[in-house]
């Protein structure tokens, strides 16, 4: 069941550029934002950019064993675990400092 053969009219480079733009936006968010929850969301965005590129390459290379899609599957697993632990850490930090601002978390510096 093939809905649409997208690579008949499209090159893999378009997906490469789309994923690169998404990854750069996530990178910009990680550098720019100070709210720890938004930071985690930017990391999710970067992971999704990588996932999209992996699925695109899996389709493009005629991957009969679905290796690329399996890797996306495991990246999702790791992302879910990471989000759970990260949010627990943020809740703990908030309980101790009443803030989720990462620029206040510099007590290891002194």
């Amino acid at each position: 069941m093939q809905l649409l053969n997208i690579f008949k009219s499209l090159d893999i480079s378009h997906y490469i550029y789309l994923s690169t733009v998404l990854f750069s936006i996530g990178m910009f968010g990680v550098l720019f934002r100070r709210n720890a929850i938004v930071l985690l969301m930017c990391i999710e965005l970067m992971l999704n950019a990588v996932n999209l590129l992996m699925v695109a390459f899996s389709e493009y290379m005629g991957d009969a064993q679905a290796n690329g899609q399996m890797f996306v599957f495991f990246i999702m697993v790791v992302a879910a675990a990471e989000a759970a632990v990260g949010l627990a850490i943020i809740v703990m930090v908030y309980r101790n400092t009443r803030k989720t601002d990462v620029s206040f978390l510099d007590s290891l510096k002194d």
Binding site: M1, Q2, N5, S58, E59, Y60, M61, G62, D63
Partner: peptide, 8 residues
Amino acid sequence: YKGSADDI
């Protein structure tokens, strides 16, 4: 482009 595998 190697052609997509169906039903993958």
